[in-house]
Amino acid sequence: MQVPAPFAYERATSVEHAIALLGELGPEARVVAGGHSLIPMMKLRLARPDALVDINGLGAELAQIRVDGDELVIGSLARHADLLGSAVAGEHFPIFHDAEKVIADPVVRNFGTVGGSLCQADPAEDLAAVFAALDGVATVRGPAGVRQVRVRELHVGPYETVLAPDELMLELRVAIRPGGGSAYEKVERRVGDYPVAAAGAVIWLDGDTVRDVGIGLTAVGAAHFAAPEAEAALRGQPATEESFRAAAQLAAEHCNPSADQRGPVDYKRHLAAELTTRALRRAAARARGQEA
């Protein structure tokens, strides 16, 4: 079987310790949490960090899922299974449960983490689209202290984030606003596969009018996993199938998918529109209390 190249290993005993270790070990050190994206890459020797800083011992600090005031807070070390099982997350944002049900598989979800998925910055990452739709904000800590990074500004390219090598993602915050509904729609070739395309939507209604909306897309080359043009077009419009389709079409036009064995460009662009429509439709139905 394939095995990683050698590396040094340190176990962090606190957030401060983790950041100090990252500083000491230099830019070729990586944080390992669940490791379910990183370790396979290391086995294939596509990733060769000099050192790993294991933060799995920081669960008490980093694995909470809770409501803080009018925000939902998800610790970066929360496992996918924790998020899927979280009643509070599902109550406010069913999109989390929609997405987590189709992320990897149940065993991987037991160990893979929310923060790890976002920091891996895979261009087909589901949670990137979910948090982009929700306009979530990551709390990031480095030697200089804590800063906030919008998830829509977190990713700068495939496998690249704005985090400095000695910064650690602590948690993600999503504003809870009344009158909303959310949903996630994904097409995959098979259960557990990366998406061919996927779309997430969150929508707030004033009667039959769209008060606000967030749309996230993954695996289709949407800049920052978001669809701001479609969102702008849909705000203030009636929450109808027609306006959803028009917005979805706009979202699709602003995507830049690449062809691979999951499908050609035209198909992925079609899916971007189709899945955005479906996500909006379902999000709106939930906002109206018509669907769980």
Binding site: Y9, V32, G35, I39, D54, N110
Partner: peptide, 11 residues
């Protein structure tokens, strides 16, 4: 349950 090929013994 976890996939033990994707977890380090150290972890």
């Amino acid at each position: 349950p976890v996939k033990s090929c994707t977890v380090l013994a150290a972890m």
